[in-house]
Design a protein around this nucleic acid. Structure first.
Lengths: 254, 254
DNA sequence: CGATGGCTTGACTAGTTTCAAGTTAGGTGG
DNA sequence: CCACCTAACTTGAAACTAGTCAAGCCATCG
């Protein structure tokens, strides 16, 4: 979490309860959105933002707050504006696969059919924008440039998912962890945050469920990378990538 | 492969060499396309198909023919009209992850940046339509309904990729194979083909590289399912799903 | 300052891979 | 038309990576 993100959340005002707070849109929530250039709202002109503000509502989430669950009617699409959210799928016996970690600019809930294909839950104190599906679809129809942007972001997501398939299907534990850390670094940079050291707000269990490993293996592998002086574990869940090139070599399997 | 698909290929005429053959579009290749309802061309009206025909060229592929390679400039987007194509990523040491098997109606090459993120190669005798990227983008700009269709298909792909992440990260070999066979069955049905017995045109190695397993484990697991009378291996690479419910229970991990 | 939950470490187990050898099937040429 | 040849597939035994079970450590927060 950058200070930038924290400021964004503070703008939302204090929570009135320990549950998620949903606020009606103010005069121009989108005009003030500091991460708009990262979201699917990016192509909208200043004087068109009113159309977006009109259908959006802002939700504040605390660590562990659920946003929606797999199988629920997919009434809304969400865009993360601050914090970190995880999306995951569950098997009947409790096995879990984390599909992705979402940060500022990322969206979720773009289901083809009418149910969410995964569950979403906040990792840190976060803020998301909620778009009722029907109204968003009307907006997309009126502004094809927004739909184009969404297609571009979906293509990007798809490429990332395919890269993750390679990781899950063919990489070793060490290669998975190295890839994961480099991926976090790249994404932080893309959001204009510090790429090194990186914030690692999710738990070892979450990381394991994202990489197809157990908590224990994740922990052992971190220790191994630390002992080899490739990374350094810092306070406040920060990780310094000490030897970037070595990490890249490991991640690629070279 | 259904007889239907084979007929489609025969319409293309004989190959003039053992390499892929690229043909200039005839008077109305799209008007005659029998799988159009499955492709991203579906929303186009009959009298608009000329715009599509004008930019498309048809390519015939024989088993093993490469279509493009990871890292090449992504000049074109392709739509499969007959046969089966595999797309895969390679690691420097040769480890391979098959990202997907494509059949009639599926598209590939929708990269966000300017390079293909994976390689594509024909499994069976196949036919694909080639759309120069620039020209396709112009077409999408003119026909937002086509772009909407593409976004819908991309969302669907994304959901499938996420399901595959769960498979790769958390399922056992037996669960992976059961899921794979059921997935093939569902997809055949969606294309109007027989969902049981199913055609399994890809090799054990391809299946392994798709499921994150070795050839040997795939083979052993098929044998195991056969011995348990859940499936039956038939001639011509066909597999009969004998006990559908048991396969579903295994696939879901129940 | 104690308690809780997350993280780390250890010993053992198991599922899958690896290495190796056979078997089957399909395509080719005599 | 048959026999061979090759590649794909199957099966077996040993090895290894990551998982499981269990205990201890650390840090954060009332």
């Amino acid at each position: 979490m950058s200070p930038f993100d924290i400021n964004r959340i503070r703008e939302l005002g204090p929570a009135v309860s320990n549950e998620s707070v949903e606020r009606e849109p103010g005069p121009s929530p989108c005009g003030a959105c500091s991460v708009r250039h990262l979201t699917f709202c990016a192509p909208m002109a200043e004087d068109e933002l009113g159309h977006v503000s009109k259908i959006v509502s802002t939700i504040e989430l605390h660590p562990g707050d659920p946003l929606f669950d797999e199988g629920e009617p997919a009434d809304s699409v969400y865009s993360v504006t601050a914090g970190a959210v995880k999306v995951y799928k569950l098997m009947p016996d409790g096995r879990r696969q984390v599909i992705g970690f979402l940060f500022s600019g990322d969206f979720m809930g773009l289901a083809h059919n009418d149910m969410y294909a995964y569950s979403a839950e906040a990792i840190t104190h976060s803020a998301v924008c909620r778009f009722p599906r029907k109204k968003l679809e009307q907006l997309l129809e009126r502004f094809p440039k927004m739909e184009r942007r969404l297609l571009g972001m979906a293509s990007h997501e798809l490429a990332a998912a395919q890269e993750q398939m390679l990781l899950l299907g063919r990489k070793t534990a060490k290669e998975k962890i190295a890839s994961f850390l480099l991926h976090l670094s790249k994404r932080a940079e893309a959001r204009g945050q510090n790429p090194n050291p990186i914030a690692v707000p999710m738990s070892r269990t979450d990381i394991g469920d994202y990489l197809g490993l157990t908590t224990e293996t994740v922990s052992r592998t971190f220790t191994q990378l630390k002992t080899s002086h490739l990374i350094s574990l810092q306070p406040a869940n920060k990780v310094e990538l000490v030897d970037l090139q070595a990490l890249r070599d490991i991640a690629e399997g070279a």
